[in-house]
Computed example of a mutant assay.
Amino acid sequence: MILVSGSKCPNNCQCQDQEVICTGIQLTEYPSDIPLNTRRLYLSDNKIRFLPAMNLGLLSDLVYLDCQKNRIQEVMDYTFVGVFRLIYLDLSFNNLTFISPYSFSMLSNLLQLNISNNPHLLSLNKYTFANTSSLRYLDLRNTGLQTLDEAAFQNLITLQTLYLSGNPWKCNCFFLNFTIYLIVSHLNYPGEGLIACGDEDVMA
């Protein structure tokens, strides 16, 4: 079967010890022939627009996925359905405009998630992090987020570090509940003590 033939190394990539490095080689789509036993996959600094669930899902041992600095626009419900062992995911510096509500629902082992520097990502559904109960590090800096629902964080009982700066927060009554969550959560905000909110500052 063609789909399960991933025993070679993709063209222009480097493969060794269950690690595949395809960084900065002008890829316009997800590479073929990724070995099925891959545990760490580096796709950063390319022009990839889409992550195909059918191909990605074959990498059942994958624990580390770096997709920063690409042109990915959407993350759908089924994108990560087969990579349930994933612990590190970097989608920063892309063109994300939409993350489907249950995109990360299969990633119960995920420890670090970075979706920073996606300036066209205007909102996140309250179910976005519904099943990422192991998450410890979350980076939401420099997106287009104007508000967040505190319900999105209810299941993140292990969350330790949260980055929020550089967003055009809209300070209104709806945002108040999230602000209260930040104050009582005792999370770590490295390098930022305030969330800039229009002409105001919200103590975090």
Rank of each mutant, 00 (worst) to 15 (best):
N109H: 11
V81D: 08
A152I: 03
D33L: 06
T147E: 06
N142P: 00
S92G: 12
K69H: 14
D149P: 03
G6Q: 04
F178H: 11
Y163K: 15
I25E: 04
L56M: 09
M76R: 14
L148C: 05
S92W: 07
C15M: 08
I25Y: 09
M1H: 07
L148T: 02
S133Q: 14
Q68V: 00
F50P: 00
N55C: 01
K69Y: 14
Q154S: 15
S103E: 05
V184I: 14
C15L: 07
N70L: 04
C22M: 04
P168W: 04
L156E: 08
P101G: 04
F98T: 10
P10G: 13
Q26K: 10
Y88H: 15
N117L: 03
S165N: 11
D199G: 04
L107N: 08
Y64V: 03
M203D: 11
I157E: 13
M54I: 13
D90M: 04
C9S: 06
L164S: 12
Y102K: 13
I157G: 00
L182W: 11
R40G: 00
F153Y: 11
D45T: 02
Y137C: 03
P190G: 11
A151R: 11
S92T: 10
S123C: 00
E150I: 01
R40H: 14
T143S: 07
L96K: 13
L113H: 06
N109M: 02
F178R: 12
L86Q: 10
F80W: 13
S108W: 03
C13H: 05
L43V: 10
E19Q: 15
N37L: 10
L113K: 07
M106P: 00
G57A: 10
K47F: 12
Q146N: 07
D45C: 03
C22R: 09
N70S: 05
Q68N: 15
Y127C: 11
N12F: 11
L182P: 09
G144S: 11
Y64S: 06
Y181T: 01
